Amino acid sequence: MLGFTRYISRTGPAKATFVGGLRKQRERRTGFNPHSQLVKALKADIAFRTGGSYLGGVVDLVKDRWKPLYESLRAGARTYLTSLGDPEQITLIQTRDALASVGPLAVKINPHFGLRFADGHREAVRIHFDEEPPNPELLTAMLHLMARHMEQILPDAEPVLVDLRRGVTHRLSPAARPGDVESWLAGEAAAFTAMWSTTAA
């Protein structure tokens, strides 16, 4: 899902360049996730209601090369944690991955965690770590795909995308028409598949 939605957020020649880079990365079997310890710390602070103490210590746990990244993300992660409100009113819950068919493309949908609030409201949370804020295309694609498969991911939950650097939570726009989004995504998936095949030639 991350690769496809990042592709969608690009325009013009940048799309082909991105697909070529993604294919090379796949062939080299690279793609280490540098954010995993941060996600664990955030989840621990939610689960144990510790108000950010795990986030406070996580920078010291990672290798030196990742410390600047973690420091740049930590303040926003704390802002997000605070925005959730009373820690006693929130429970961390498990989500499941789903596999979506988007035109000719199979897209794995993998939220980072789920939340249940005291009033019964649920959220399936996907985190955005990039330096640039998520643009409208990326937001629409990611939240729509999560919403489309919510029965598998976390029944009766609302999909949210958290821009972690800024501590901002994004939700699906009520103005988005699912049919129009589906058509747009199918077209983007067809173009992605064509570019992938071209870079393989």
Score class of each variant (00 low, 15 high):
W66T: 07
P174L: 04
H35Q: 10
R26H: 09
K67T: 13
H112V: 02
R78K: 14
T198V: 07
E88K: 11
F113H: 12
W196C: 00
F18S: 05
T11G: 03
F48L: 15
T82S: 12
S72M: 07
L84Q: 05
S53I: 13
E27K: 08
P111M: 10
A98Q: 07
V125Q: 03
G52V: 11
L105E: 11
K67E: 14
L185G: 09
R166M: 09
M1K: 02
Y7Q: 02
R10L: 15
L139F: 00
S183R: 15
K40C: 03
T199C: 02
L164P: 01
S101D: 15
G187L: 05
Y80S: 09
D45Q: 06
Q94R: 13
Q94Y: 04
V59S: 15
V162R: 04
R28H: 05
G179L: 12
S83C: 04
T5D: 10
A157V: 10
V107T: 05
E71D: 12
T169P: 02
A141I: 07
L81T: 09
T79S: 10
M146Y: 01
A200N: 12
D119N: 15
P34K: 10
L73I: 12
S173I: 02
T95Q: 02
S53D: 11
T79W: 01
R26K: 09
G179Y: 07
P155I: 02
G52Y: 08
V168T: 14
G52L: 11
A157R: 07
T17C: 00
G167Y: 10
R23S: 01
G57W: 04
Q152T: 15
K40P: 00
E27V: 08
D163I: 08
P104V: 06
I93F: 00
L2C: 00
R49W: 05
W66K: 14
D97N: 13
I109C: 05
R78F: 11
Y54L: 03
A147R: 13
F192L: 13
P136V: 05
I109Y: 03
A124F: 01
H112G: 08
R122P: 00
R6E: 15
A194F: 02
G31C: 04
V58I: 15
A141E: 06
G57A: 10
R65I: 14
A44H: 02
F32K: 08
R23P: 00
M142G: 08
D119F: 06
A201R: 12
K108N: 14
P133V: 10
R96Y: 01
G52I: 11
A190I: 06
G103R: 12
